[in-house]
Amino acid sequence: MKPARFDYHQVRTAAEAVSVLAQSGGEAKVLAGGQSLVPAMNFRLARPEVLVDINRVAELDRLTDEGEILRVGSMVRHAAFERPVDDGPLGRLLSMAARHVGHLPIRIRGTFGGSLAHADPAAEWCVIARLLDAEMVAAGPGGDRRIPASEFFHTVFTTALEPDELLIEARLPKPSPSAKVGFKQFSRRAGDFALTMAAAVVEVRGGEIAEARIALGGVSDRPVRAPGAEEMLRGRPLPPSSSSSSSSYTAFADAAEHASGEVETIGDIHGSARYRRDLIRVLTRRALEQAAAQ
């Protein structure tokens, strides 16, 4: 389990990275945290001829708060989110999710951008990006372009990024300060990729759900939303605060049930497609309950 040979370039700026990528005729790969790429190279499942190491590109390791939008530079490490990066619901949500990204040493190296570019359908950041309708900013030979999350994730390990493009940052729209967030996942062992995860943002106005967003990970070939379930929740009251799972209140359970039916699921050795539907049902409901309990 030793990697195949490659050419190594350590770059200091994003522009330099883009230019090396351009010169490499599609045979180069960006090396970010290396926590997905290097295992794949050790197995020789990935064998890039050129590696462009962006670990020393300071400009990419930056969080910028623009009020409505949090700009996350692609080299910001997972560990940066363990403590909330802002006081609002976004900081909370990112922190809840960050704890589930692998283990501490993985979070110390792995990056936000690397996770998005790698596009594992069970990656927390991919699900959050989809949940919030984030925009990904890519730099290529022809300049920068923005790609909405709904178009960014193509299939397992495949995104809209061209081989010569560098992911610069993700732009995360912030939920309103009063929004409630929930994040639940189920994995076989601590730190493993989840079999399924559900993330929810609930915007509340006048005691009613003004907007709900639900994103699911680990269920199919990319992170997905559950639009039908989201729609069902619009205009519904929140559960009575005493007990969020009180039996007479069924809106969350109904929406979760709907979510489990409306998305495609696929099976693997850890669980069948059918089992993943079970997980969507329970995790969606629990994520909504968690949000409502805030």
Partner: peptide, 11 residues
Amino acid sequence: ATPARLRSLLR
């Protein structure tokens, strides 16, 4: 007794 097996028994 994996979670998936138990769920399938429970189903």
